[in-house]
Nucleic acid binder design. Structure first.
Lengths: 218, 218
DNA sequence: TTTTAAATTTAGGCAAATCTAAAAATTAAA
DNA sequence: TTTAATTTTTAGATTTGCCTAAATTTAAAA
């Protein structure tokens, strides 16, 4: 049986390997999970014993086939619960993270399937993030990071790639939500920040923010 | 913060004190939680330190005011989730227990309140058990244990006071479900078993079963 | 009322998941 | 290419929740 702590490690490793392609480093995992590097080393050994990750000391870890499957299942559950909270229980998109973080660990295949059906097989969560299906396949996405758009191009927001409360509340304060039209006015080379228009009104955002905004171009 | 294990102990103590009125014994708790008496003693000390129970060594435990409040909250969550599973996700009444056992530990007041609203403030779970409201009040019940009915009297099933799968499946095999009309034909003194009719068809059931069937008399 | 049986607690240990501090390996800098 | 800085791992502890075995207390029986 896989423990709650193990599930959280798998999820963190998945997230990190999506960002950077190569192995997740001990420090990066520790950072992600707000714990100490030594704790990470301990846990990685346990995950290695269970064949959920491949590990070379000092070189980082990668999810194994079965580890990836587990991690994707957790992401699936997390995002389905988020849809439930927003569409059925009227939560706001910046209120769902902590609760979904708990719900994602409920173990019952029947529950996940029934929830998926109940929600009408959604393909994206309330932040626009793709929801893998029963077989672990992610729906194809046509979005780009806002930071990748060229000067002058425009589109609208279809998602965010981070769901922490402070980021979402910052977006709220900028009047950015799913569907908001955005145009890139100027790219500042110095710090990679952007001059953009949000619903025709101009604003300046950092590269950090632009990286986490998913845009579908027009 | 109260841990998962602590929550399970509080729930067990509440259940035991409903059955027997006086303090829950160490052995009874161990039995209920399928653990050892020595483990129970350990945990009781922790609960005592947190002032969730009152404990006199060798004399058993009682829930404190705050312990009772916590325990009732857990019962509330358990039963609300059961309603959700049956009415929204099409689970059968004998399939909900294990999942609800996990869901009851999700911590979010907002979630419980929103779920309650979403479900329409149900007063009973799929087994007919009362659901305490936000303030911890249980709805008034007019049911009796089938074992308490007199010879010749009749009514219909409004609940069961145990939700383990084998009991519920036995009821299914007897064609007993919520609403089923029942009449007491004969009470056997020897073992307190009963001759009854279920939907006009006669059957014989043990006292153990009769105690856990809640009947509203006609 | 003494003896026996049953229930409960204590003592000592173990596994999971974490930590701090120190050692070892790797990477970057001089 | 040595040295310094950083990253990672090891060693040794701690806490939680559980265990077995032994001691103690309470209840039941003779």
């Amino acid at each position: 049986m896989i423990t709650l702590a193990e599930e959280n490690y798998l999820k963190a490793i998945l997230k990190l390997s999506k960002n950077s392609k190569d192995s997740a480093s001990t420090n990066a995992i520790a950072e992600e999970l707000d714990t100490k590097a030594s704790s990470v080393t301990d846990m990685i050994k346990k995950l290695t014993d269970k064949q959920l990750v491949d590990y070379v000391p000092y070189r980082g870890v990668n999810l194994s086939r079965s580890g990836l499957k587990k991690a994707v299942e957790i992401v699936r559950k997390h995002r389905l619960w988020e849809v439930f909270l927003v569409t059925k229980l009227q939560f706001k998109w910046d209120e769902v993270h902590d609760v979904a973080e708990q719900l994602e660990h409920i173990k019952s295949q029947k529950l996940v399937d029934a929830l998926d059906t109940f929600l009408g097989y959604p393909q994206h969560d309330p932040h626009g993030e793709p929801i893998p299906n029963k077989d672990g396949q992610f729906p194809k996405s046509f979005s780009k990071q806002l930071s990748e758009l060229e000067k002058g191009s425009s589109g609208h927001v279809v998602g965010v790639s981070q769901d922490n409360q402070s980021f979402l509340q910052y977006l709220n304060s900028l009047n950015i939500t799913l569907g908001t039209p955005i145009r890139v006015i100027q790219k500042i080379e110095f710090d990679d920040s952007l001059e953009i228009t949000i619903n025709k009104k101009s604003a300046h955002i950092s590269n950090d923010v632009a990286k986490n905004l998913l845009i579908k171009q027009i």
